[in-house]
């Protein structure tokens, strides 16, 4: 019999091998890096997909049903590159505290 007792709170998978994220990494929410968010004017948007192409964190995608760009609040770091790259000037930065939504409120940063 092993002399070791592994307490529940100290259990680790063998060799520290973990399941990898498939689409999003819930262990690394980055929405709270943001002080300002890009707000889209769907009327002015031409769905040119520049924001989708330039976003370093893949936080813009085209919803094919509504034919509108959709923004991901959980992972957008607020770098505002999309605003810089938007040829239709349909994006605008707004301070995060103007919105009650988009709350991440993590218990620990990492």
């Amino acid at each position: 019999m092993s002399r070791f007792i592994i307490p529940k709170h100290l259990e680790v998978p063998l060799g520290a091998v973990l399941p990898a994220p498939v689409k999003e990494q819930p262990g690394m929410i980055t929405g709270n890096w943001r002080t300002e968010r890009p707000v889209i004017d769907h009327e002015a948007c031409t769905t040119c997909l520049n924001c989708f192409i330039y976003c370093p964190d893949a936080c813009w995608h085209l919803d094919e049903k509504t034919e509108q760009m959709v923004w991901n609040a959980d992972y957008c770091k607020g770098c505002l590159i999309c605003i810089n790259e938007c040829p239709a000037n349909c994006l605008e930065p707004v301070n995060e505290l103007e919105f009650p939504d988009g709350v991440v409120r993590l218990e620990k940063p990492f």
């Binding site: 007792i5 307490p7 100290l10």
Partner: peptide, 12 residues
């Protein structure tokens, strides 16, 4: 091994 053997468990 601290916290992993019966003589030295639960020091946290």
């Amino acid at each position: 091994w601290m916290n992993f053997e019966k003589e030295v468990l639960d020091t946290h």
